[in-house]
C-alpha cells in the first residue's frame, strides 16, 4: 500500500471512531428524546443508501428491491423475538445473514437480466416478500404485531438512545465495507461491469460472481438496517415494513450524493433524510415524497453525477482559475 493510501485509511478510522464517540456522547448528554428518534432514521437511511450503492452505484444495477430486503430484516427480528426472545444484536446479526442469503438467491434469479429488466424483477421481489409475510399468521399477518421492548441496558437511560448508538455503529460498518469494496479489486471489477459488461467478461472479470458478491453484501446491510426497526417502532406490519419509500429513498439518496464514491450515498442520505425529518415536523409527512421527487429531478438535470460530481466540477474550475 502507498503512503497516501495508508494515510487515508488511518484518517478514515479516526473519523469513524470520532463519529461513534460523538453518537455515544450525545446519548449520554442530550435529554430530548426526539433528537434520537429522528437521528435513528437518518442513520438508518445512510446504511440503506450505502448498501444500495454497492450494487446500484458501483456495478450500475439499479435495484428497486431495497424495501424487500428492509422488510425481511424487520420480520427476521420480529420472528426471532416471538420465537426465542432473541436479544437485539442477535436479531441484527441473523438479519444480516438472512439478507446475504436472500441477496445471493435473488441475484442468481435476476442478475442475468440487465438494465431495466433487472430493475423490474427487483420490484417483483418486494411484492412477493410482502405477500408472503401478509399471509404468515405467526408474525402478525396483515394486521401487524405489537412488540414489547426489553429493559434498557446501562449506560443508556432510554431504549431509543441505545438504538441510536447501535445505528451509528452500523453506519460505520456499512461505510467501511463499501469503502473496502470500492478500493479493492472487486471495486474495479464492478466499475468495469458498469461501464461495459461484455468487455469486462472478455477481460477476465467473472461478472456474475462479482455481481453476486455485491448483491449479497448489499442485501446483508439492507436486512441488518431493517432489524432494529421493529424495536424502534415497537410495531411491525407488512405495508410499512415493505414500503416502496425505502427503495425510492435509497436510490434517490445515492444518486443525489453521487454513486462513484462511498461518500456520495452518505452525503445524499444526510441531506435528504434530514430534510424529510424537518419537513415531517414542520409541514407534513406527505410533503416528503414531493420533496424527494423534486430534488431527484433537480439533481438529474443540474448535477447528474450528484453532489460529488458538482464538487469535482467546482474544484476543477477553481484550480483552473488560479494559475
Amino acid at each position: 500500500m502507498t503512503m497516501q493510501g495508508l494515510g487515508q485509511r488511518i484518517g478514515f478510522w479516526i473519523g469513524a471512531a470520532a463519529f461513534i464517540a460523538l453518537a455515544f456522547a450525545m446519548a449520554l448528554v442530550i435529554r430530548n428524546e426526539y433528537v434520537f428518534f429522528a437521528g435513528f432514521v437518518i442513520l438508518q437511511f445512510i446504511v440503506l443508501a450505502t448498501a444500495w450503492n454497492i450494487l446500484g452505484g458501483y456495478a450500475g444495477y439499479v435495484n428497486f428491491g431495497t424495501s424487500a430486503f428492509f422488510g425481511v430484516g424487520v420480520y427476521t427480528a420480529v420472528f426471532l423475538l416471538k420465537a426465542v426472545d432473541a436479544p437485539l444484536w442477535i436479531q441484527i446479526l441473523v438479519a444480516a445473514i438472512v439478507g446475504a442469503a436472500l441477496g445471493l438467491g435473488v441475484g442468481l434469479l435476476t442478475l442475468r437480466l440487465r438494465g431495466i429488466f433487472f430493475s423490474i424483477a427487483t420490484v417483483a421481489i418486494t411484492i412477493i416478500a410482502e405477500t408472503l409475510i401478509t399471509n404468515w399468521k405467526f408474525v402478525g399477518g396483515a394486521t401487524g404485531v405489537q412488540l414489547l421492548r426489553p429493559p434498557v441496558t446501562p449506560p443508556f437511560d432510554s431504549y431509543i438512545k441505545m438504538l441510536f448508538v447501535i445505528a451509528a455503529v452500523m453506519v460505520v460498518i456499512a461505510v467501511a465495507l463499501a469503502r473496502h469494496v470500492q478500493n479493492s479489486g472487486i471495486g474495479r471489477g464492478l466499475r468495469a461491469i458498469r461501464d461495459d459488461e461484455i468487455a469486462a467478461e472478455c477481460s477476465g472479470v467473472p461478472t456474475l460472481n462479482l455481481k453476486l458478491v455485491a448483491c449479497a453484501l448489499s442485501g446483508a446491510l439492507m436486512c441488518a438496517a431493517g432489524a432494529p426497526s421493529a424495536m424502534y417502532l415497537q410495531f411491525a406490519d407488512p405495508v410499512s415494513a415493505f414500503n416502496l419509500n425505502y427503495s425510492v429513498s435509497a436510490l434517490a439518496m445515492s444518486l443525489i450524493g453521487g454513486t462513484s464514491h462511498w461518500i456520495g450515498p452518505v452525503l445524499g442520505a444526510i441531506l435528504l433524510a434530514t430534510t424529510q425529518q424537518l419537513l415531517t415536523v414542520t409541514i407534513s409527512s406527505e410533503v416528503n415524497v414531493l420533496v424527494l421527487g423534486v430534488m431527484l429531478v433537480l439533481f438529474v438535470v443540474v448535477a447528474p453525477e450528484g453532489i460529488i460530481g458538482l464538487v469535482r466540477r467546482v474544484w476543477r474550475l477553481v484550480r483552473r482559475g488560479t494559475p
Partner: peptide, 16 residues
C-alpha cells in the same frame, strides 16, 4: 471502460 483512464482499462485485464 468509459469511466476509467487508459491505464485503468488495462489494469482491469491484468487484475482479473
Amino acid at each position: 471502460f468509459k469511466s476509467m483512464t487508459v491505464l485503468e482499462n488495462l489494469l482491469v485485464a491484468i487484475d482479473f
